[in-house]
Design a protein around this nucleic acid. Structure first.
Length: 194
DNA sequence: TGGACGATTGACT
DNA sequence: GTCAATCGTCCAA
Protein backbone atom coordinates (compact mmCIF):
# COMPACT_ATOMS: atom_id res chain seq x y z
CA UNK A 1 0.00 0.00 0.00
CA UNK A 2 1.41 3.32 -1.06
CA UNK A 3 1.68 6.16 1.41
CA UNK A 4 -0.23 9.15 0.06
CA UNK A 5 0.39 11.58 2.91
CA UNK A 6 2.53 13.67 0.55
CA UNK A 7 -0.63 14.48 -1.41
CA UNK A 8 -1.58 16.61 1.57
CA UNK A 9 1.16 19.06 0.61
CA UNK A 10 0.25 22.49 -0.79
CA UNK A 11 -1.29 22.00 -4.21
CA UNK A 12 1.60 23.40 -6.26
CA UNK A 13 4.10 21.14 -4.52
CA UNK A 14 1.82 18.14 -4.98
CA UNK A 15 1.46 19.02 -8.68
CA UNK A 16 5.27 18.97 -9.02
CA UNK A 17 5.59 15.67 -7.23
CA UNK A 18 2.92 14.01 -9.33
CA UNK A 19 5.23 14.38 -12.34
CA UNK A 20 6.88 11.00 -12.88
CA UNK A 21 4.30 9.10 -10.86
CA UNK A 22 2.33 6.40 -12.64
CA UNK A 23 -1.35 5.66 -13.13
CA UNK A 24 -2.48 2.06 -13.42
CA UNK A 25 -5.91 1.42 -14.91
CA UNK A 26 -7.34 -2.10 -14.88
CA UNK A 27 -10.11 -3.06 -17.30
CA UNK A 28 -11.02 -6.65 -16.56
CA UNK A 29 -7.92 -8.69 -17.51
CA UNK A 30 -6.27 -5.67 -19.13
CA UNK A 31 -3.76 -3.42 -17.38
CA UNK A 32 -2.99 0.03 -18.73
CA UNK A 33 -0.16 2.01 -17.19
CA UNK A 34 1.12 5.52 -17.89
CA UNK A 35 3.69 7.93 -16.49
CA UNK A 36 2.45 11.43 -15.65
CA UNK A 37 4.35 14.17 -17.51
CA UNK A 38 2.15 17.27 -17.23
CA UNK A 39 0.02 18.66 -14.39
CA UNK A 40 -1.87 21.81 -13.37
CA UNK A 41 -2.66 23.01 -9.84
CA UNK A 42 -6.15 24.25 -8.88
CA UNK A 43 -6.99 25.58 -5.41
CA UNK A 44 -10.21 26.83 -3.85
CA UNK A 45 -9.13 30.49 -3.78
CA UNK A 46 -8.38 30.29 -7.50
CA UNK A 47 -11.02 31.81 -9.84
CA UNK A 48 -10.11 29.22 -12.49
CA UNK A 49 -10.93 26.30 -10.19
CA UNK A 50 -14.20 24.40 -10.27
CA UNK A 51 -14.26 24.74 -6.48
CA UNK A 52 -13.93 28.54 -6.42
CA UNK A 53 -17.64 29.04 -5.74
CA UNK A 54 -17.82 26.33 -3.11
CA UNK A 55 -19.02 22.78 -2.83
CA UNK A 56 -21.58 21.54 -5.39
CA UNK A 57 -22.83 18.18 -6.67
CA UNK A 58 -20.28 18.21 -9.48
CA UNK A 59 -17.17 19.06 -7.47
CA UNK A 60 -18.06 17.02 -4.37
CA UNK A 61 -15.11 14.68 -4.98
CA UNK A 62 -12.67 17.59 -4.74
CA UNK A 63 -13.53 17.91 -1.04
CA UNK A 64 -13.06 14.25 -0.10
CA UNK A 65 -9.42 14.75 0.78
CA UNK A 66 -6.08 13.78 -0.77
CA UNK A 67 -5.91 10.59 -2.80
CA UNK A 68 -9.31 10.72 -4.43
CA UNK A 69 -10.05 11.12 -8.12
CA UNK A 70 -12.09 14.04 -9.43
CA UNK A 71 -13.39 13.56 -12.97
CA UNK A 72 -15.25 16.25 -14.88
CA UNK A 73 -16.75 16.38 -18.35
CA UNK A 74 -15.11 19.00 -20.52
CA UNK A 75 -17.13 20.58 -23.35
CA UNK A 76 -19.67 17.78 -23.00
CA UNK A 77 -17.23 15.39 -24.66
CA UNK A 78 -14.02 14.77 -22.74
CA UNK A 79 -13.54 13.19 -19.32
CA UNK A 80 -10.59 14.79 -17.55
CA UNK A 81 -8.86 13.36 -14.48
CA UNK A 82 -7.69 15.20 -11.37
CA UNK A 83 -5.97 13.90 -8.27
CA UNK A 84 -7.40 15.58 -5.18
CA UNK A 85 -4.70 16.95 -2.87
CA UNK A 86 -4.39 19.26 0.11
CA UNK A 87 -6.66 19.03 3.14
CA UNK A 88 -9.96 17.22 3.39
CA UNK A 89 -12.82 19.71 3.19
CA UNK A 90 -10.81 22.12 1.03
CA UNK A 91 -11.35 21.93 -2.73
CA UNK A 92 -7.86 21.49 -4.13
CA UNK A 93 -6.71 19.22 -6.92
CA UNK A 94 -4.23 18.57 -9.69
CA UNK A 95 -5.36 18.15 -13.29
CA UNK A 96 -3.43 15.39 -15.06
CA UNK A 97 -2.93 16.94 -18.49
CA UNK A 98 -0.64 14.41 -20.18
CA UNK A 99 1.19 11.12 -19.66
CA UNK A 100 3.41 8.61 -21.44
CA UNK A 101 2.08 5.11 -22.19
CA UNK A 102 4.08 2.40 -20.40
CA UNK A 103 1.85 -0.65 -20.67
CA UNK A 104 -1.23 -1.54 -22.71
CA UNK A 105 -0.46 0.83 -25.56
CA UNK A 106 -2.42 -1.28 -28.06
CA UNK A 107 -5.59 -1.08 -25.99
CA UNK A 108 -5.13 2.66 -25.53
CA UNK A 109 -4.81 3.02 -29.31
CA UNK A 110 -8.08 1.13 -29.75
CA UNK A 111 -9.81 3.33 -27.18
CA UNK A 112 -8.42 6.45 -28.85
CA UNK A 113 -8.84 5.45 -32.47
CA UNK A 114 -5.30 6.68 -33.17
CA UNK A 115 -1.70 6.30 -32.03
CA UNK A 116 1.56 8.17 -31.59
CA UNK A 117 1.89 10.97 -29.08
CA UNK A 118 -1.80 11.81 -29.71
CA UNK A 119 -2.54 8.77 -27.56
CA UNK A 120 -2.16 10.64 -24.27
CA UNK A 121 -0.79 14.16 -24.85
CA UNK A 122 -3.81 16.06 -23.52
CA UNK A 123 -6.31 15.79 -20.66
CA UNK A 124 -9.23 14.65 -22.84
CA UNK A 125 -7.01 12.26 -24.77
CA UNK A 126 -5.64 10.72 -21.59
CA UNK A 127 -9.16 10.31 -20.26
CA UNK A 128 -10.19 8.46 -23.39
CA UNK A 129 -7.02 6.32 -23.50
CA UNK A 130 -7.58 5.16 -19.92
CA UNK A 131 -11.37 4.79 -20.28
CA UNK A 132 -11.96 7.37 -17.56
CA UNK A 133 -15.57 8.41 -17.00
CA UNK A 134 -17.64 10.37 -14.50
CA UNK A 135 -18.29 7.18 -12.55
CA UNK A 136 -14.68 7.27 -11.35
CA UNK A 137 -15.11 10.65 -9.69
CA UNK A 138 -14.68 10.16 -5.96
CA UNK A 139 -12.73 6.94 -6.44
CA UNK A 140 -9.86 6.22 -4.01
CA UNK A 141 -6.69 6.08 -6.12
CA UNK A 142 -4.99 3.71 -3.69
CA UNK A 143 -7.28 1.04 -5.12
CA UNK A 144 -8.10 -0.69 -8.41
CA UNK A 145 -9.39 -0.06 -11.00
CA UNK A 146 -7.47 3.21 -11.01
CA UNK A 147 -4.34 3.37 -8.91
CA UNK A 148 -1.71 6.06 -8.44
CA UNK A 149 1.81 4.67 -8.08
CA UNK A 150 4.36 6.86 -6.36
CA UNK A 151 7.73 7.47 -7.97
CA UNK A 152 10.75 9.57 -6.92
CA UNK A 153 10.34 13.30 -7.69
CA UNK A 154 11.79 14.59 -10.95
CA UNK A 155 14.99 16.61 -10.70
CA UNK A 156 14.27 20.31 -10.36
CA UNK A 157 16.06 21.03 -13.64
CA UNK A 158 13.64 18.82 -15.56
CA UNK A 159 10.49 20.61 -14.39
CA UNK A 160 9.22 23.43 -16.59
CA UNK A 161 6.75 25.88 -14.99
CA UNK A 162 4.25 27.79 -17.15
CA UNK A 163 0.83 29.37 -17.11
CA UNK A 164 -2.16 27.05 -17.43
CA UNK A 165 -3.82 26.05 -20.70
CA UNK A 166 -7.32 26.84 -21.90
CA UNK A 167 -8.56 28.99 -19.02
CA UNK A 168 -9.78 32.59 -19.03
CA UNK A 169 -9.73 33.40 -15.31
CA UNK A 170 -6.44 33.72 -13.40
CA UNK A 171 -4.71 32.82 -16.66
CA UNK A 172 -1.50 34.53 -15.58
CA UNK A 173 -0.70 32.26 -12.63
CA UNK A 174 2.30 29.92 -13.04
CA UNK A 175 0.58 26.69 -12.00
CA UNK A 176 1.34 24.29 -14.83
CA UNK A 177 4.23 21.85 -14.57
CA UNK A 178 5.71 19.52 -17.13
CA UNK A 179 8.63 17.18 -17.73
CA UNK A 180 10.99 18.92 -20.13
CA UNK A 181 12.31 15.55 -21.34
CA UNK A 182 8.95 14.08 -22.39
CA UNK A 183 7.60 14.04 -25.93
CA UNK A 184 4.03 13.69 -24.63
CA UNK A 185 3.63 17.21 -23.23
CA UNK A 186 0.49 18.84 -24.68
CA UNK A 187 1.77 22.36 -25.26
CA UNK A 188 5.36 23.50 -25.20
CA UNK A 189 5.56 27.23 -24.78
CA UNK A 190 4.55 30.01 -22.47
CA UNK A 191 7.51 29.70 -20.14
CA UNK A 192 7.06 32.03 -17.20
CA UNK A 193 9.03 35.25 -17.54
CA UNK A 194 12.25 35.29 -15.56
C1' DT B 1 -37.27 25.07 -16.10
C1' DG B 2 -34.31 27.06 -19.73
C1' DG B 3 -30.21 28.85 -21.57
C1' DA B 4 -25.35 29.95 -21.47
C1' DC B 5 -20.99 28.10 -20.68
C1' DG B 6 -16.71 25.44 -20.62
C1' DA B 7 -9.56 23.05 -16.94
C1' DT B 8 -10.82 20.20 -25.27
C1' DT B 9 -10.28 18.02 -29.50
C1' DG B 10 -10.13 17.08 -34.37
C1' DA B 11 -11.54 18.37 -38.91
C1' DC B 12 -11.10 21.66 -42.18
C1' DT B 13 -9.46 26.23 -44.99
C1' DG C 1 -5.16 29.75 -38.78
C1' DT C 2 -10.80 28.92 -37.76
C1' DC C 3 -14.68 26.44 -35.97
C1' DA C 4 -18.25 22.98 -34.60
C1' DA C 5 -19.32 19.09 -31.59
C1' DT C 6 -21.94 17.94 -27.31
C1' DC C 7 -23.90 17.65 -22.52
C1' DG C 8 -23.57 18.06 -17.41
C1' DT C 9 -23.74 21.80 -14.47
C1' DC C 10 -25.10 26.11 -12.62
C1' DC C 11 -27.81 30.05 -12.00
C1' DA C 12 -31.33 33.34 -13.28
C1' DA C 13 -36.15 33.62 -13.69
Amino acid sequence: MDDFSWLGLPVEEAARRLLGCELERTLGPETLRVRIVETEAYSQDDPASHTFSGRTARNEAMFLGPGHAYVYLSYGIHSCLNIVVGREGVGEGVLIRAAEPLEGRDTMALLRGRGGVALTNGPGKLGQALAIDLGLSGHDVALAPLRLLRRPPLGEERVVVTTRIGITKAAELPRRFYDRDSGYVSVRARPVAR
